[in-house]
Amino acid sequence: VCKLPGCTKRYTDPSSLRKHVKTVH
């Protein structure tokens, strides 16, 4: 789960979560 406020994205893969945080936030 993306911990950033207002973000409801969920990821099972930690690397995918990191990529999400880098690109989306």
Rank of each mutant, 00 (worst) to 15 (best):
V1W: 00
V1S: 02
V1I: 09
V1G: 01
V1A: 03
V1E: 13
V1Q: 10
V1M: 11
V1H: 09
V1P: 03
V1F: 07
V1K: 03
C2A: 02
C2Y: 04
C2E: 06
C2S: 05
C2L: 02
C2N: 11
K3D: 11
K3N: 11
K3G: 08
K3S: 09
K3H: 08
K3R: 05
K3Y: 12
K3I: 03
K3V: 02
K3C: 05
L4M: 13
L4D: 14
L4G: 07
L4W: 10
L4T: 05
L4C: 10
L4I: 14
L4H: 14
P5H: 09
P5W: 01
P5Q: 05
P5M: 06
P5S: 10
P5R: 01
P5D: 06
P5I: 06
P5C: 02
G6T: 02
G6M: 04
G6F: 00
G6D: 10
G6K: 00
G6Q: 00
G6N: 11
G6H: 05
G6W: 00
G6Y: 00
G6P: 02
C7Y: 00
C7K: 00
C7G: 06
C7R: 00
C7T: 04
C7V: 01
C7N: 08
T8W: 02
T8F: 09
T8L: 05
T8P: 01
T8G: 14
T8K: 05
T8Q: 08
T8V: 06
T8D: 14
T8Y: 08
K9V: 07
K9A: 15
K9F: 15
K9I: 06
K9W: 14
K9E: 13
K9H: 08
R10S: 15
R10H: 14
R10K: 12
R10I: 06
R10W: 03
R10G: 11
R10C: 12
R10N: 15
R10E: 14
Y11D: 12
Y11V: 09
Y11N: 11
Y11A: 07
Y11K: 11
Y11Q: 10
Y11C: 14
Y11R: 06
Y11S: 13
T12V: 07
T12Q: 11
T12P: 13
T12L: 04
T12M: 10
T12S: 14
T12Y: 01
T12K: 09
T12R: 02
T12D: 13
D13S: 06
D13M: 01
D13Y: 00
D13K: 00
D13F: 03
D13H: 03
D13G: 00
P14D: 12
P14K: 09
P14L: 09
P14Y: 07
P14A: 10
P14Q: 10
P14R: 06
P14S: 11
P14N: 12
P14E: 15
S15N: 12
S15T: 08
S15I: 07
S15P: 03
S15R: 04
S15D: 14
S15W: 01
S15Y: 04
S15M: 09
S15A: 13
S15Q: 08
S16D: 15
S16M: 15
S16G: 08
S16H: 13
S16L: 14
S16C: 11
S16Q: 13
S16F: 01
S16E: 15
S16P: 06
L17P: 08
L17K: 06
L17I: 04
L17S: 07
L17G: 06
L17R: 01
L17H: 05
L17M: 12
L17V: 04
L17Q: 06
L17Y: 08
L17N: 09
L17D: 12
R18V: 13
R18G: 12
R18F: 06
R18T: 15
R18K: 13
R18C: 12
R18N: 15
R18P: 08
R18E: 15
R18Y: 08
R18Q: 15
K19L: 10
K19V: 10
K19Y: 14
K19R: 11
K19N: 14
K19F: 08
K19T: 12
K19H: 13
K19I: 12
K19Q: 15
K19C: 12
K19M: 13
H20F: 00
H20E: 06
H20D: 11
H20R: 00
H20M: 05
H20A: 03
V21S: 03
V21H: 04
V21M: 13
V21A: 07
V21G: 08
V21Y: 02
V21D: 09
V21T: 02
V21Q: 10
V21P: 02
V21F: 00
V21C: 06
K22S: 13
K22M: 10
K22P: 09
K22E: 15
K22Y: 07
K22H: 12
K22D: 14
K22T: 13
K22L: 12
K22I: 10
T23W: 02
T23K: 03
T23H: 06
T23C: 08
T23M: 07
T23L: 06
T23F: 07
T23Q: 10
V24W: 04
V24R: 03
V24D: 15
V24E: 13
V24Q: 15
V24I: 04
V24N: 07
V24G: 13
V24P: 11
V24L: 04
H25T: 10
H25I: 01
H25L: 01
H25W: 00
H25S: 04
H25N: 08
H25F: 01
H25E: 08
H25D: 11
